[in-house]
Design a protein around this nucleic acid. Sequence first.
DNA 1: TCGCGAATTTAGGTATACCTAATTCTTAGG
DNA 2: CCTAAGAATTAGGTATACCTAAATTCGCGA
Lengths: 233, 233
Amino acid sequence: MTAGQRAKNNTESVDNYLKAILYLSGVAECRVTIKALSERLLVAPASVTNMLQKLAAAPVSLVKYERHRGVQLSASGKRRALEVVRHHRLIETFLYEVLDYPIDEVHEEAERLEHFISERFEERIAAKLGDPRVDPHGHLIPTMDGKMPERLPRDLILLSDVEEAGAYLIDSFSDRSVNTLRLIEACGIAPEVRLRVKKCAPKGYEVSVGRSTKIFDLSREVARDLRLMRLPK
Amino acid sequence: MTAGQRAKNNTESVDNYLKAILYLSGVAECRVTIKALSERLLVAPASVTNMLQKLAAAPVSLVKYERHRGVQLSASGKRRALEVVRHHRLIETFLYEVLDYPIDEVHEEAERLEHFISERFEERIAAKLGDPRVDPHGHLIPTMDGKMPERLPRDLILLSDVEEAGAYLIDSFSDRSVNTLRLIEACGIAPEVRLRVKKCAPKGYEVSVGRSTKIFDLSREVARDLRLMRLPK
DNA sequence: TCGCGAATTTAGGTATACCTAATTCTTAGG
DNA sequence: CCTAAGAATTAGGTATACCTAAATTCGCGA
Ligand SMILES: [Mn+2]
Ligand SMILES: [Mn+2]
Ligand SMILES: [Mn+2]
Ligand SMILES: [Mn+2]
């Protein structure tokens, strides 16, 4: 990626479109609709169409776009999206581990800075952190060479989908809802920590965390933000 | 400063105008010409006039501007400029001390990031660094409450203005020229280090640094970037 | 004191990234 | 198989921050 190319393509706005497409297309990498992007980015559908046309028409096009049939990332679009996600998650880890940020403030700061740090900055914080594999929310960090690492095949389930009491391991949780994050932290919830589900009721869940026996009530709302790994019985 | 106000006023571009005015108006805070700003910011004079008119007309105006008579910072313009300079110098110090950046790379990174870090980020790196007084180039860091600290009254002189051999203390040096910075570092030059000037010739200077007896040749070019403190005899 | 050149300002234009309103396309249900 | 609701696109407009070229203003030196 030459300096010139980068200057033209990678504005903050473009980065955010690429990240949104990556996220919305999921592991199956299916086509993403204008409407979905419009909702995620809080931008009018007309603006999305406009931007996608530009991204597709660029000298080195970042998306595959066909009128009325949605978008997918091109190879270089995906490369850039993963680079930005790597920035985001490294920055979150750095803020949390080195600068002692409260967990509910790392996301917002990372969301801004991810677009403005240099390759050197990326390299230095990765080194400082010992090339971490996951961020403070348990999300995998794309590698230096631009690939999302394979996760060990885990039997993952959202807490909101759990229907029977039992023991689980916390895999990861959303980085977006400040309320959820505060609550989660108050319970001692963190990636790789044990979670015992005591009761599943329609309005919420009773759980205990780690080796503590204290019982916490988690709402359905919060439960949708919590991804668990089923433990073999 | 409310969030709304901030969103409207403090773009990267506005920040850079304010910093440039602060710098060019000097300690005497005299008026700055459009031409001087145009040259420092690498922007056409017409663009400068345009921007200054907007800054002056803003709901809370950032500059005092009168047609054909140059600009000065208003109280709030100065406050913001000093805040950005504080960001810049704290970031430089952080990159140098915590992330082990080479000295000649800190400025460029800081020049970008200074506009995008939050108050929390500022607070955390300042804490991590123990509220440093100066940056790695020896420049004073504005305080948290937005004032440039008084320097102890020092008898300062540029190396390029030195006319007689003698002993000096290095006060500070420019953060802008990568070439100068590399050279300076190779000599072991750093703030508060002793510099002995052995010979002043028209094409340059012969100096030794710290307790070393090794002689280095510094060009006039480089000498203009080096600020020294005269030592009492 | 007058005019000329430099500095500044005005006028008109570009690119990015948004917006709303009007139009067109797609497709699922009747 | 047709149609209308919803999705997408087009058309036309805004704000920021630049640009060049043309017009104006200032102040210094003859
Ligand atoms: Mn972002
Ligand atoms: Mn995260
Ligand atoms: Mn800057
Ligand atoms: Mn500096």
